[in-house]
């Protein structure tokens, strides 16, 4: 083998890294481009605001949009208080002991459980054991447990970014720990928690496997009335129309994918912009 000079080997390696990065980035852009290019023609006000017709081969996707919206709304109202409280416990109260180690291990473990296993668990516990049926609330609870580790981790990061000295300054005046958290730590961690929440919304909107057996329905001829209703959901709807229905018009598939992708990507972009904005405005 020819031994390359260090300079040449550096150039060669840099080129390799450059190509690898391109390989990682180009598919994202391609995927987004394909969906946008093919889906844009299907998008119209009617597509977004009407019911599916003719075995879903025509009409719009309104029930799926509303279904996803209600599941996400429901899940976020459950998970946000619980996740933030858990993060407060870990960051502000927990001592460095065995219990805390177990909690952290549990969080790592929860984060790794496959989404379909959560779906199965939700089916067994919420749908059957608590008799909630296949419903918005059962799906939202399942998603909440699944997203809990992510919410805890981001909220903890936000709490942790508030300087410790602020807490000490507050304690030194005789203010209690909870009052310090409530009036000094939380207000300053809020931007971080908010960005994390938007990202969680994005992720929940795209999840399919956990709601497969807990919330989603193949077809529901009416819009959701209560949290105990079965609903159509965008990701599940997309799965159905792209694999289960023969002769499905391509533009409806792409249109649905585009709507879903836009919801998720818009949320992610908002979160990214918010993060930059808050960073610039940070007071300390």
């Amino acid at each position: 083998m020819i031994k390359l000079s260090p300079k040449l080997s550096q150039k060669f390696s840099y080129a390799l890294l450059y190509i690898a990065t391109l390989l990682a980035i180009v598919p994202v852009i391609t995927i987004i481009f394909i969906i946008v290019k093919n889906g844009i023609s299907a998008i119209s006000l009617e597509f977004l605001t009407s019911m599916p017709k003719n075995g879903m081969r025509e009409g719009g996707i309104l029930p799926a949009i509303l279904g996803t919206f209600s599941i996400v709304l429901c899940a976020i109202t459950i998970i946000l208080p619980v996740g933030v409280c858990a993060a407060i416990y870990l960051n502000e109260y927990a001592k460095d002991n065995f219990l805390t180690k177990i909690i952290k291990l549990s969080i790592v473990n929860l984060a790794g459980i496959p989404s379909v296993v959560y779906g199965l668990f939700g089916l067994g516990i919420f749908v059957m054991f608590f008799k909630l049926g296949v419903s918005i609330i059962a799906g939202a609870l399942t998603l909440s447990i699944m997203e809990l580790p992510v919410v805890i981790t981001t909220a903890r990061g936000a709490l942790n970014s508030v300087p410790y000295s602020f807490r000490e300054a507050s304690w030194s005046l005789g203010v209690s720990r909870w009052q310090t958290i409530r009036h000094v730590v939380l207000p300053n961690a809020l931007p971080g928690i908010l960005t994390g929440t938007i990202l969680t919304v994005a992720r929940i909107s795209g999840e399919t496997a956990p709601i497969l057996f807990t919330a989603a329905a193949f077809y529901v001829p009416h819009l959701p009335h209560s949290i105990f209703d079965q609903v159509m959901a965008m990701p599940y709807h997309l799965y159905i129309i792209s694999t289960q229905i023969p002769n499905m018009p391509k533009n409806i598939i792409y249109g649905t994918a585009l709507v879903l992708l836009m919801v998720v990507l818009t949320m992610s972009c908002i979160a990214m912009i918010a993060r930059i904005y808050f960073k610039k405005r940070r007071k300390w």
Partner: peptide, 18 residues
């Protein structure tokens, strides 16, 4: 871009694959 990539739902990835 990588953050966006992580956000793309798996159904959409599946669809593109198919």
């Amino acid at each position: 871009l990588i953050e966006l990539m992580a956000a793309i739902p798996s159904v959409v990835i599946g669809l593109i694959g198919v």
